[in-house]
Design a protein around this nucleic acid. Structure first.
Lengths: 138, 138
DNA sequence: CGTTCCCTTTACGCGCACGTCAACTTCACT
DNA sequence: AGTGAAGTTGACGTGCGCGTAAAGGGAACG
């Protein structure tokens, strides 16, 4: 039974509300991520305290979401980022997943580059058309 | 053989099954996209025939999905790609949306570049750890 | 003491993007 | 005429990612 809070890590622990304000997420989402084992906040009594590690993971979660990764895919990725305590075979498997993800992300970037170029061209065309329509109108 | 088919566009019209095989989507998905006004296959009797335009749009749909865009967001984007027949105010509004999307996509690309670098580093670290664990083991 | 917050769990609900029947029609082939 | 393959329109079901009450605990304040 530990009766004292650890002073050395206190500054790294944030309440659920602080996290919500800082990262623009809802309490519900954070609890949901915990239930899906993407976050592991420690407990002080009933209340959750989010550590530095949790915040780092949360950043990766939010980023992953922006790229259309599912929470399950993100969970697998997160394992790579704190794989310190994993066994050899587990770590090797994590690396395999990471390599796949890396290839996937590189493919996405190429696609994204292409999409950006196309959209730029299309936008340019649209703006020119707007301009021609405006001069033609008067 | 029906003599009324236009030989010049026949190769541009594909049945739902051909589309499904070519783009790895289900009939259900294609009908769903049509119901949400992302695709506009022409009808020969009851059957849908997907034109070149539909296939171009489908490519953009699938790409958009990979980046986590909703179908509604994709629909708005698609409007830019065949905005020929739009009115001035409508076209201007489309351009506004396109500019927002463009900024968004460029921000995503920067994030993706960062994420790729981080994952690369992490993977390198993991592979080194695997190597050290293997030599240490023997 | 009661009230006000903030937090908790439990549980049901919802929008999206389809999947999955069910019940046809239409066409090709035998 | 019969059979089968492929297409059609509803209508309901499903998994994900939470939203949203409902009901309650605990501490802080007047």
């Amino acid at each position: 039974m530990r009766d004292e809070t650890d002073k050395t890590t206190t500054d790294a622990q944030m309440t659920i509300r602080q996290i919500c304000d800082a990262y623009d997420v809802t309490p519900r989402a954070l609890r949901f991520y915990e239930s899906k084992e993407l976050l592991f906040p420690i407990r002080e009594g009933q209340k959750r305290l989010f550590t530095r590690s949790d915040r780092a993971r949360l950043k990766l979660i939010l980023r992953g979401k922006r790229f259309g990764f599912s929470l399950e895919e993100i969970r697998q990725l997160l394992n790579l980022y704190d794989a310190d305590d994993q066994h050899l075979t587990q770590l090797e498997q994590t690396c395999v997943i990471a390599r796949e993800r890396l290839v996937d992300m590189e493919r996405r970037r190429n696609e994204l580059d292409l999409a950006i170029e196309e959209l730029r061209d299309q936008l340019k065309w649209g703006e020119e058309k707007v301009a021609s329509l405006k001069t033609q109108e008067n």
